[in-house]
Each structure stands twice: as C-alpha cells, then as structure tokens.
Amino acid sequence: MTVKSNHVTIKGIKDGLVFLLDDQCEFSELLNELRYKLEHSHQNILTGPIMHVDVKLGMRNISEEQKTLILDTLKQKGNLLIRSVETQGCVPEDEAGSSLHTLCGLVRSGQVLRHEGNLLFLGDVNPGGQIICSGDVIVVGALRGMAHAGADGNEFAIIAASYMAPTQLRIAEIISRPPDEWENRESSMEFAFLRGGTMQIDKINNVGKVRPDFNVFKGV
C-alpha cells in the first residue's frame, strides 16, 4: 500500500503522543492509513514504554462503531494507552453539512422570506422586511431589515451581510438591536454571531474563529 496524502499525523507532546486524524477523507481510508502508520513507523516510539495517547479527530463526527475501530487499531500496539478521543464537531452533521441554498431578489417592507437550512441571499433586505432561516443567513447586498438565523434554536448560526445596517438581528432566541454607531461604520462585510449568549459583530475574515467548520485549511 502506498500512502499518497498524509491523513494521519503523530506528534509528540510532553507526556505522550497526539494522533491528529484528518477530518476530510473517507473513514476507511483514514483507518487504513492509521494501521499502516502504526506498523511502519518509528519502532522506538511505538514499542517503547507505556505512552499516553490523545486522538484528535478535527471536525469529523464519528459513530460509536467507528470510534471502536480506531481504538482497536491503536490497541494493537500494547504500549499505547488511550487517554482521550476528541472531536471539535460542534455543529451536528445534518445542519453544518447541508448545502447553501441561493435565492435572489429584494425583500421589501412587510415581506417575509422563510427558509429551511442555510441561505445565500443575493440582494437587499429593506427596513421592515424579514429573513427567517433555520441555518445561517448570508446576504450579499444591504441588510437593512431584520434577519433571524438559527430560528429553530441553533446558537451556532451566523448572519453575514455585505452591508450590515439591520433594524434588528436575531440568532436562536437572542435578539439584538444594533447600537446607533453602526450607521457610520466602514463598509467591509461583517457577520453576527453569539458568544456566551450575547450578540457580537466582527469582520467576515474572522468567521473561521467562530465557525471552524467553514475553514478551508483545517488544522492538521
């Protein structure tokens, strides 16, 4: 078997080893590579004294069955003591994984655009208009009306807009009214999110800090 891409990285830390497992590839591929690594790696690390092992799965969500498979593979080496298996997958697969639906138009005063899932809206939302969405709301245009993301209670939902001048923002159960100084802000694209139950606004290039599942280059 030849290993083309590096899906498994083994790092040494002060008191043990960290197995960083890629979260993009197929699970079977990952498992094969893990086996291969364990069998062909530096003998002195994997056959020495007892080692504590942390397994990091990144954004991958795994089933119990898959978890057992990984653990069994690691247990083949008698000296590896598994201390933890971590996944950052904070957003359930069915929500984060669902695609972005694209709509365009102009939401005028009195009009309500409802959508199940994540919405990419090309156009403006005027004062008095509403977008209500169970997932994320991304407005490419001016958001001057009201946007409600994560309407079913998803607190990880975000609202982004090219021009963020809303009358009100809502994420899950949290309602926020923009402070008056918003009016004169620079016109770079911004997004709103919840941190500790309060609404925050940040530039769009920081969205990856809040939603690691969006990142192109996932940390391995």
Partner: peptide, 16 residues
C-alpha cells in the same frame, strides 16, 4: 422621509 420611504417600499412589494 424614512416613514414615507418605508410605506412606499411596502406598496411596491404589493404592486409587484
């Protein structure tokens, strides 16, 4: 005026 523009927006929506 904002109030008038808001109502005009609503009317345009209904006309459309």
């Amino acid at each position: 005026e904002h109030a008038s523009v808001r109502d005009a927006d609503r009317i345009i929506g209904l006309l459309e």
